[in-house]
């Protein structure tokens, strides 16, 4: 398989790796850029475990060809702020942890765009992240808590 030099900004750092031409963004994050926090759950854009922010937009990284990430900004679960992690851990958002990175990225996106929550509702918003452990209540609780903390921060 042909290779190419892929340069991108990962969690704020510019990096370049030589990667396979047919790789997906998910593959290069995990196996080339040393960022295995992002998980593969289904490989077909169904489960959302591989969610990342691409130029600030929530996407499934298993559906993004690596070459389209050239020159772009990627944020992954590894750059999640510690206070958000604490909030989510107290509410039971994670159990086995395999869907968790994608869930966390969806939550981070929603925190940046709280207006989405108002228009679609939290459960509909989270329906792109399939979880087999929590029954979603722990995830929704985490999301609610995070939105509240965010709103408080915005006030002060």
């Amino acid at each position: 398989m042909d290779k190419f030099d892929l340069s991108l900004t990962l969690n704020g750092k510019s990096e370049t790796r030589r990667v396979a031409l047919d790789a997906r963004l998910l593959d290069v994050l995990r196996y080339d850029f040393g960022s295995p926090g992002t998980k593969e759950g289904c490989g077909e854009g169904e489960c959302g475990a591989c969610c990342v922010l691409l130029d600030g937009v929530l996407v499934n990284s298993c559906l993004v060809p690596a070459f389209q990430a050239a020159g772009r900004r990627i944020e992954t679960v590894e750059s999640t702020p510690p206070d958000l992690l604490q909030t989510l851990n107290a509410t039971g958002t994670s159990q086995c942890g395999a869907c968790t990175p994608g869930v966390v990225m969806s939550i981070r996106w929603l925190l940046q765009h709280p207006e989405i929550a108002e228009s679609v509702g939290l459960r509909a918003f989270m329906s792109g992240n399939l979880c087999r452990c929590t029954g979603y209540d722990g995830i929704i609780a985490g999301l609610e808590q995070a939105l509240q903390s965010n709103a408080k921060k915005a006030e002060t």
Binding site: C51, V57, V59, N60, S127, G128
Partner: peptide, 12 residues
């Protein structure tokens, strides 16, 4: 549009 996949699909 809101019913195509989920948010992560709708953005792409």
């Amino acid at each position: 549009a809101r019913q195509v996949g989920a948010m992560q699909i709708q953005t792409r």
